[in-house]
Design a protein around this nucleic acid. Structure first.
Lengths: 271, 271
DNA sequence: GAAAACTATTTTATATATTGAACAGCCGGA
DNA sequence: TCCGGCTGTTCAATATATAAAATAGTTTTC
């Protein structure tokens, strides 16, 4: 089984990114808190104050203050014996409330289930908020052949793979250095920049995007845009399949089904 | 269908609670952020800065700063047109990571499914962290009769219903004014305080707790404690059923099954 | 159609959160 | 047993996040 994950290189880059965010924000404690939460989320085992502070380039006492606040807010759990910190169930409450209220997820789930079943592909519903990340918000896996998996909550760079081409094609990217963004991406088999631009043009014409093994070799990704009530690109339906299998079982039909369902979803999101 | 919810009285109490938390903490921005996140989670529609500030007794400019920080951290989404704020999918990422790493949820889910199926009850797995709230972390609903429902992520007061009696019986409650806590609880049919104390004693003896229609009239709740590796009360298995139906289908057997499974879970949580 | 009442946002002085050093407790090694 | 290197934690000085008023824009109201 291929597990798709956002290969955040991280390490020391994170510390600097955080330092920037802290300086520019007028509520730096929140940036620090977010960084700590994400670190704890990534970590397999509970972490101590020093470890956290070192990893994020924070002063230990500051880290302690932030952690204590997060503990009282029930976002973080502290083991009183080992003095180790880990995520607490409080984060669940928020996520649940979000899921319950998001129109796209509730409308998209049955659609994803249907398509994944009939076309034997892994289907994802993703959210596109701003031009930072895209987030997988719902997921339906094909039953037959064991295959591709992406967890709900995973994040990916905006411009990568088929979804990336969709965003580049249909979002307002004025003021974005596409070349610079492109250079930051990590693909299994990166397309040339010119080639990529051409694919974006193609996407504009046909209304959906295809990634034929660029992001993950051997895996074909199809993404179709979903528009919110104000006509902005807010979500996308994404199909993942083993390249050869997808070609055999009718890529054209899948694309047609996807565009049709995306159209319906877009109109229903208005209501 | 009865939807079980935490009837947080809220209103102006929240403002004062937040004010306290802010004063005592050394990272008040985090308390404010948490309050805002929870408010947005509760709200059906996106909210404006002023609304948020008024509801939580915050200075608008402070609320704005906090909101902007939350937006850059992708926990909150702002609609640039309407300037309204709502939860963003970023919270999902954390929740997903937590769920994936929590031993109890992964071990408990199959158990819940099995019991809910064989005994035709709604099963919940709850987490007990500290003495503030308990949180529903997994859930399995019986198929046959349409009935009781509690969402994953819901929170309840610690001492309420059957779970409350478990906690009172098996947690270290020294330094807790039980009477004061008891008086704050809201039940459909509250037991007398003396009666409640007696039930706690009973719980200590038999190893599980029963709430026969006190919390929600007509609904019987059974809760059995689950202990973590250091022998602390960390979770509980909770069964919910229509009182009459439960009595008919064998309450005793359900209790036995629950205690047995809780025992197994406790030992496996050590590994 | 103008003004009133609302909104989000910027500004600046001050109360305060952050810092970095010093403190206390713990464990492993010599 | 003592020491050196860890840990989490406290404390006082300072850099800074916060609060209240002023600004600017938008919808409502008359």
């Amino acid at each position: 089984m291929t597990n798709i994950e956002n290969n955040d290189s991280g390490h020391k880059t994170r510390g600097r990114k955080l330092a920037q965010a802290v300086k520019e924000s007028k509520a730096p404690a929140i940036s620090r808190a977010a960084a700590i939460l994400r670190l704890l989320g990534r970590s397999d085992a509970p972490l101590g104050v020093q470890t956290i502070a070192r990893e994020l380039d924070l002063v230990p006492s500051t880290a302690l203050n932030v952690l204590r606040a997060l503990v009282t807010e029930q976002f973080v759990n502290m083991d009183p014996d080992t003095k180790r910190y880990s995520l607490d169930a409080g984060v669940l409450t928020l996520a649940r409330q979000w899921l319950g209220r998001d129109q796209f997820t509730s409308l998209a789930q049955p659609v994803l289930d249907r398509i994944s079943h009939t076309h034997d592909v892994t289907m994802l519903g993703v959210q596109i908020s701003g031009l930072e990340n895209i987030i997988v918000v719902s997921c339906s896996e094909a039953g037959s052949n064991f295959q591709l998996r992406a967890e709900v909550g995973s994040r990916f760079p905006v411009f990568v793979s088929a979804t990336g081409r969709c965003i580049a094609a249909f979002s307002d990217c004025s003021g974005v250095d596409l070349k610079a963004q492109f250079d930051k991406l990590r693909w299994d088999e990166p397309p040339a920049y010119e080639e990529w631009l051409q694919q974006i043009e193609e996407t504009k014409k046909q209304g959906f995007a295809v990634d034929a093994g660029n992001y993950i070799s051997g895996v074909t990704v199809v993404a179709v845009p979903v528009w919110n009530s104000r006509g902005q690109l807010s979500n996308a339906l994404v199909a993942l399949g083993i390249g050869s299998a997808l070609l055999r079982s009718g890529l054209a039909e899948l694309q047609q089904a996807l565009t049709e369902e995306a159209r319906k979803l877009s109109s229903r999101l208005g209501g």
